[in-house]
């Protein structure tokens, strides 16, 4: 695999291979010295045009645990604020010969565009409202750990689907792994035509009990200014996942950060059904596996890393 741009580019086998390798890396994170030399001498560039704490730190940690050198480049305080174009920035940074660029931008397709300008491997860490493939991979990883297989499982994604790259990547990934996906949210925040991704659409939580997994999306406050929903109170009344709505055998997920009292009530965040911290934990090993995949593992058919002999794909 040359780049990770979209879940759409992956087969079920690709996903399983990456997640198997992530499981192998899990062992590393239990060691005293949490580091393997798999990517020693490689440079990973984190290029973030949007604020991010967990995704960026998780990528940074993943690269460092593989012994790669990491350069962080944030849009604020950089030449971007002086009006440099994305292309010029990428060409300039490419002059430092990074082996991989992890990029987040507010624009759909930007990661793919960057892939056409540089020889580095590109990992999409979020492109606008399009996709966030490593989030989907870590969510599948978490569910595999929790439930075993996703085959035949019923997953509800609840909230602002229209503005969510997490929703788009997860619908694709969950479908690929054999799950049935339903999206549910205010009609103003369900994009016209989303059924084309192979999911069902509901506008209320009446049948939420069908779900094996409830995946709540973050309700962003700026959507309130744009009047997509009348009020946060009304949103919470209709769509909040709370103790009354969440069944005892349902798994609860959220990409974080959580707005307690809006999309989730406090009691479900702290309930045993919630796997939110497992998701964050999975982020590091899954991103290790992704970096390994694009930089070293493409020709390794055994599905497990060979930490001392990295090969460039």
């Amino acid at each position: 695999m040359r780049h990770l741009l979209s879940i759409d580019d992956l087969t079920r086998e690709d996903i399983e291979r990456i997640l198997d390798r992530a499981a192998a890396f899990e062992e590393v994170s239990h060691r005293d010295i949490k580091k393997v030399p798999a990517l020693r001498g490689r440079t990973v560039l984190n290029l973030f045009y949007e604020a991010s704490t967990r995704t960026r730190s998780s990528f940074e940690l993943a690269a460092k645990r593989l012994s790669a050198d990491v350069v962080n480049f944030a849009a604020s305080g950089s030449s971007v604020e002086k009006g440099e174009s994305l292309k010029d920035t990428v060409l300039t940074l490419t002059a430092h010969s990074p082996d991989a660029i992890v990029i987040r931008t507010p624009y759909a397709g930007a990661a793919a565009l960057v892939a056409s300008w540089t020889t580095a491997a590109i990992v999409n860490a979020g492109d606008g409202k399009h996709e966030h493939p490593t989030q989907a991979l870590l969510d599948v990883y978490t569910l595999r750990t929790k439930l075993g297989s996703l085959q035949g499982r019923n997953i509800w994604i609840v909230g602002d689907v229209a503005h969510s790259r997490v929703a788009r990547s997860n619908i694709l990934a969950f479908k690929k792994m054999g799950a049935d996906v339903t999206v549910c949210g205010p009609p103003t925040l369900i994009p016209r035509g989303i059924e084309a991704l192979g999911c069902a659409v509901r506008y209320d939580l009446r049948d939420l009990r069908e779900a094996d997994v409830v995946y709540a999306l973050r309700m962003q406050h700026e959507r309130m200014d744009q009047h997509f929903v009348p009020s946060l109170r009304e949103y919470a009344a209709q769509y909040q996942i709370n103790g009354r709505r969440l069944g005892p055998r349902q798994v609860l997920m959220h990409p974080g950060p959580v707005n307690r009292g809006v999309e989730l009530s406090g009691e479900v965040v702290d309930s045993p059904q919630a796997v939110i911290t497992m998701q964050v934990k999975a982020g590091v090993v899954v991103r290790m596996a992704v970096l390994y995949e694009v930089l070293a593992g493409a020709r390794d058919e055994r599905g497990a890393p060979r930490p001392t002999e990295p090969q460039l794909a």
Binding site: H130, P191, G193, A196
Partner: peptide, 10 residues
């Protein structure tokens, strides 16, 4: 606005 825009998140 249609299935492709829904897919792309544009």
């Amino acid at each position: 606005e249609g299935t492709v825009s829904a897919l792309l998140g544009v």
